[in-house]
């Protein structure tokens, strides 16, 4: 596994490598929306400045980026432990639904306790969906790339059914569950972007400290880089195969809980909206470094918010953002200079 070191020597290659994906997003984003719009000027302007064109848009942009950062922190935790978790989408969806069910069940509790419990259950809901893949890896050597994706796909379909049928709020026009008590939702006048930005900052700092300052963090990195060596030096590889992946699920689940307990206040069918996939791009863009995930999430959050604004204002399909994310993902692990130019370090 390639984990760039913060103390690594800064070279032209490393700078180019770090700068290429965000530059691709900055250049390709406006180009793509212009290409698919009848009014390229309006499309580019709404894409570039839409996310900060009003207080409401800016709050939504910050909240979206924070949710993305939470998922990406989960992705980074899994990647650094050597597990390619492709199940983020289902883990997020599961967390959102479980959080809403918990909030509905705890409607008689105090709002603060109900919110804390709902967020906790949301994290558990995401973790529960990652657990089969972690157990499969630990006890059967199962491939996390495939198992996490397959479990997630099955869960997404099952949750779609739960929201559309047995748990559906018959009085709502939305395909969604009942709404939780307004009392437990964030006061949007005081916290326009909700609580997710605080959680993203907290977990980014905690994970950065964990990897940089603790033995367990170094053990995760060592196991992710070379599990055979980790075993030979006596690290608890069984534990290391399990908990980072379950932790990744929990972070995705927490993000799902924040989405469901956000402006909608309920679990809406399809609410994950591809965030689990985008989080992979964010994590890779940040080199799986927790603190670097924050600006990377802001960049791709801007891309999503900009594409949404361009869709509303200039009629450009929202899918334009997918194209740009694909380029970013493609470049995120690329090396843009030949080995000699990078100082002759062998690949």
């Amino acid at each position: 596994m390639n984990i760039p070191s913060i103390r690594a020597r800064v070279s032209a290659g490393s700078l180019l490598r770090a700068a290429a994906p965000p530059l691709a997003a900055i250049v390709a984003g406006p180009l793509v929306v212009a290409l698919f719009s009848g009014d390229p000027g309006t499309a580019i302007a709404s894409f570039a400045f839409g996310p900060v064109s009003s207080a409401g848009a800016a709050s939504a942009f910050v909240e979206q980026s924070a949710l993305l950062a939470l998922c990406a922190l989960g992705a980074a935790l899994a990647f650094r432990s050597g597990s390619f978790n492709l199940g983020g989408e289902g883990q997020l969806y599961s967390g959102g639904l479980v959080a809403v069910l918990a909030a509905l069940a705890l409607s008689s509790a105090s709002p603060a306790a109900a919110l804390a419990a709902a967020l906790g259950f949301g994290a558990l809901g995401g973790a529960a969906l990652a657990l089969p893949s972690a157990l499969g890896k630990r006890f059967a050597g199962a491939d996390v790339l495939l198992s996490s994706f397959l479990v997630s796909q099955a869960a997404v379909l099952a949750i779609d059914w739960l929201i559309a049928s047995p748990l559906r709020d018959a009085e709502s026009n939305l395909i969604a569950t009942k709404m939780v008590s307004r009392a437990i939702l964030p006061d949007r006048a005081a916290f326009p972007a909700g609580y997710a930005p605080f959680a993203a900052l907290l977990f980014a700092a905690a994970l950065a400290l964990f990897f940089a300052r603790t033995g367990e963090g170094r053990a995760v990195d060592l196991y992710g880089g070379n599990p055979t060596f980790a075993k030979s030096v006596g690290l608890p590889v069984g534990k290391l195969a399990l908990w980072p992946l379950v932790g990744a699920g929990a972070l995705h689940g927490l993000a799902g809980a924040f989405i469901a307990l956000g402006p909608a206040g309920r679990a809406v069918r399809g609410m994950s909206g591809g965030m689990g996939w985008t989080a992979i791009a964010v994590s890779l863009l940040a080199g799986n470094r927790p603190l670097a995930i924050l600006p990377a999430a802001l960049l791709l959050g801007w891309l999503d918010s900009g594409a949404r604004q361009a869709a509303v204002i200039a009629g450009v399909p929202f899918d334009a953002a997918l194209l740009v994310k694909a380029f970013v993902l493609l470049l995120a692990t690329a090396r843009l200079l030949p080995p000699r130019a990078r100082g002759g370090r062998p690949a």
Binding site: L145, I280, A320, A321, L323, K325, A326, L330, T333
Partner: peptide
């Protein structure tokens, strides 16, 4: 692996 995932996104969009 990542290039494959990127290609899936590219096609979807």
């Amino acid at each position: 692996f990542v290039a494959g995932l990127a290609a899936n996104l590219l096609v979807q969009g």
